[in-house]
Design a protein around this nucleic acid. Structure first.
Lengths: 348, 348
DNA sequence: CTGTTAGCGCCTTCAG
DNA sequence: CTGAAGGCGCTAACAG
C-alpha cells in the first residue's frame, strides 16, 4: 500500500483537516471534548482516512501518566500464574490498559531487576504475584523500589500475603488448608503426610499451618517426620513424595501444598507401584485446570486464580488513590474428587 | 523515605552533578559513550543517589523507537500459548526488551483491535501466535494493519503458517502428524479415528492431512466417518470423542489434533467405560507439560513451543531488517508413551 | 569531550 | 469554540 515511511502524526491530520493541532488533539483524544460536532467529525474522518493512530509514548510524556499496567509473575508457563495473568489481562482490557509482563523465574534478584525496569516504564500500576518470602535479603531492596514507585504516584498491588504497606489480594491459604484437613479426616484419613514447597515461602507456611490446625481440630495430629519439604514444582512433588514414603511408609493420606506438586507426587506413587486414590489418598491446592484431567481426578482447594488477577487490576485502578492500603481476602472452597475416596477406619 | 512527588528527571541529575543535561544523557544512556571517565562516574553516582530511572516513554519519543515487543496470543491460560509466551519473554529479556501481551480469546475481531492498540505503542515488533484461518473475512483487515505497521519500520513475526508476506516461525504440523501415523500403524493400529479442531484453522488442516498421508503411506486408510470436528479445546475433545465412537464404534486408535483435545477425549473414553491406552489407543500433538502427567501418559508429537517463541523474538530483532521475509521451519518428533501400547493385529 | 539548540509527538494552559 | 505557545523528558546534531 505505502512505501517505507513514518507513522502518521497528529500534525499531519490537523493540516489535512485544515485545523490546528490543538483542535485535532481535542477532537480525537480530548478528555473534555468541547469541539463543535462538525469539526470533530471532519477531523475524525481524515484521521481514519490517513490511518492515524495516537502515539501512546508521546501521550504518556505529555500527560505524565501512561496507560500501562505491569505484571510480575514467577513463571508464565506455570498454570497457577497463567491463570492469574489471564484475569489481569481481562481486567486491564476492560479498563483500556495495556499489560506488560515479565517472569522472575523464582529468583528474587530477577524480581528486583524487573521492578526497576518496570519503574522506567512509568506504568499506572505494578502488580506482583508470587508468595512473599520470610527473611529474604532482597525483600528490603524490593520494598524500597516499590515504596519509591508508590511515592511518585504509582499504584502497587500484591497478590500475596498481608501485612504489607500496599494493597494486597490475599488468598485464604490457612483457612482453605484447614477445611481440607477436616474433610480428609471425615473421609477416614488417619495417618497424614505433607509434601510442601520451601517453608521460606509464606504460601507454603500458611498451607501447612492451616492443615495442621484442621487436623488438630479433628482430633488427629501429624507425626514429626511426616512433613517433607521439596522444590515448589512438579518434580519437587515427585521427589518429595518418595522421601516421605521412605520415612513414613504407613501414611494413608497426603496433602501436597499445590496441585502441581500433587501431580508430581501422584506420578511418584505410581512409579512406586501404588495407586493414588486407592492405596493412598492425595489432595492438592489451587484447582488448576489439570486437576480434573489427571487420573484419579484430584481433590483440592479451589483458588479463584483468574478472579484474583482481575480484582488486582480493579484495586490498581481504583480512583480513590489516596486511601489506606487495602486487603482483599479471597475465599476458597474444597472440592472432593476421586483422589480421596472414603476409607474404612482401621480402628473405629 | 520521600513524600509524594514526581519521579527524578535527567535534568535534576544533571544539575546535581553540575553538568549539562546532554552530558548526563550521554553518561547514563548514551550509546557511544564519549564522555570522560571521571564525569561519567560522577553523573552515574548522583543518578544512583537520587534514584534516577530513565523514562522509557520519553526515550521512545525522542529516539523514535521503543524498546517494546508486543505479543498476541489466543489465550494465555492455554498451556500451548503460555509455553510460547515463556519463550518470547526469555528472548526479549536477553535483548533488553519489554514484553506487552494481549489475549485475542479466539476472536478475530479482538485480534484486530489488539493489533491496532499495539500499533499505537509503536513497538519494535509485533509477534502473532495462533493459527491462520482460511477465508477469514477479518484476515484482510488484519493484514492491512500489519502491512501498515511494517511499512513504518515495524517488524512482524507470525508463529503460524506460510506463505505470508512476513517472517514466519512454522511448525512442521504435516510432517509431524505423518510420522505419528506411521508410528501408530507400526504399533498395530488398524482402525483409525481423528478428533480435530475446526478445519478452518490451518493447524488442524495440516495435522489431519499429514496424518492421512502417513496412514496411506503405511497402506492403511481412514473411513469417511472417522474424522470428527469439534471445538479446539479440552471440552471439544470430550464431545468430539463421543461423536466419533457413536459413529464408528470399532476404532482402535485415535488421533486428537492437540494434546488439550486428547486429554478431553481420554476423559470421555473413561466416562464411556473404556480404558485409554488399553481398549483404545490415543495420541495427541504438542507435548504440553500435562502430557506426561495424565494416566496413561500421552503419546504425542513434540512441538518445541518455548523455543518457537524464543526464535520468533530473535527473528524480530534481526539487525538485517531489510531482508526478504523468512520462514523458519521448526521440526517435530514423536514421543511414544503409555497411551499407545503395541497391540496384536487381528488379521495378520 | 562538553554545552547549546532543536526537535520527537502530544497535551494544555491562555488568549482571543 | 478555536489557535498560538509552552512544556513533558529525553536525544541528536551542531558548534565550540
Amino acid at each position: 500500500m505505502s512505501a517505507k515511511g513514518q507513522p502518521v502524526t497528529l500534525g499531519e491530520v490537523a493540516k489535512a483537516a485544515g485545523v490546528s493541532i490543538a483542535t485535532a488533539s481535542r477532537a480525537i483524544n480530548g478528555s473534555t471534548r468541547r469541539v463543535s460536532e462538525d469539526i470533530r467529525k471532519r477531523v475524525q474522518e481524515t484521521a481514519d482516512r490517513l490511518g492515524y493512530l495516537p502515539n501512546l509514548s508521546a501521550q504518556a510524556v505529555a500527560k505524565g501518566a501512561s496507560s500501562t499496567v505491569a505484571v510480575v509473575v514467577s513463571d508464565i508457563a506455570d498454570p497457577f500464574f497463567s491463570a492469574i495473568a489471564a484475569g489481569v489481562m481481562r481486567g486491564a482490557n476492560e479498563a483500556g490498559l495495556v499489560v506488560t509482563l515479565a517472569a522472575a523465574d523464582h529468583t528474587p534478584q530477577n524480581e528486583l531487576d524487573i521492578v526497576r525496569t518496570f519503574r522506567s516504564q512509568r506504568p499506572r500500576a505494578i502488580i506482583l504475584s508470587g508468595s512473599r518470602s520470610v527473611a529474604d535479603p532482597n525483600q528490603a531492596l524490593l520494598d524500597e523500589q516499590l515504596e519509591a514507585f508508590a511515592s511518585t504516584g504509582g499504584k502497587v498491588v500484591l497478590i500475596s500475603q498481608s501485612p504489607s504497606p500496599f494493597d494486597v489480594v490475599e488468598l485464604a491459604n490457612r483457612e482453605g488448608a484447614r477445611e481440607l484437613a477436616r474433610v480428609l479426616v471425615e473421609r477416614g484419613g488417619q495417618r497424614f503426610g505433607i509434601v510442601t514447597g520451601p517453608q521460606r515461602l509464606m504460601t507454603n507456611r500458611d498451607r501447612v499451618a492451616g492443615f495442621r490446625e484442621g487436623l488438630e481440630e479433628s482430633g488427629t495430629s501429624l507425626e514429626t517426620d511426616a512433613v517433607v519439604e521439596a522444590e515448589f514444582s512438579r518434580d519437587g512433588g515427585y521427589t518429595g513424595l518418595r522421601t516421605l514414603l521412605s520415612r513414613v511408609p504407613e501414611v494413608d493420606t497426603i496433602f501436597a501444598t499445590s496441585d502441581v506438586m500433587a501431580i508430581g507426587a501422584m506420578t511418584a506413587l505410581r512409579d512406586l507401584g501404588k495407586t493414588p486414590g486407592k492405596d493412598i489418598s492425595i489432595a492438592g491446592f489451587d484447582d488448576i485446570d489439570t486437576a480434573r484431567d489427571v487420573t484419579p481426578t484430584l481433590t483440592t482447594v479451589v483458588a479463584p486464580l483468574a478472579d484474583m488477577g482481575y480484582r488486582a487490576v480493579k484495586l490498581a485502578i481504583d480512583p480513590d488513590a489516596a486511601r489506606d492500603p487495602q486487603v482483599l481476602k479471597v475465599n476458597t472452597s474444597v472440592i472432593v474428587r476421586e483422589s480421596t475416596p472414603v476409607r474404612e477406619r482401621a480402628s473405629a
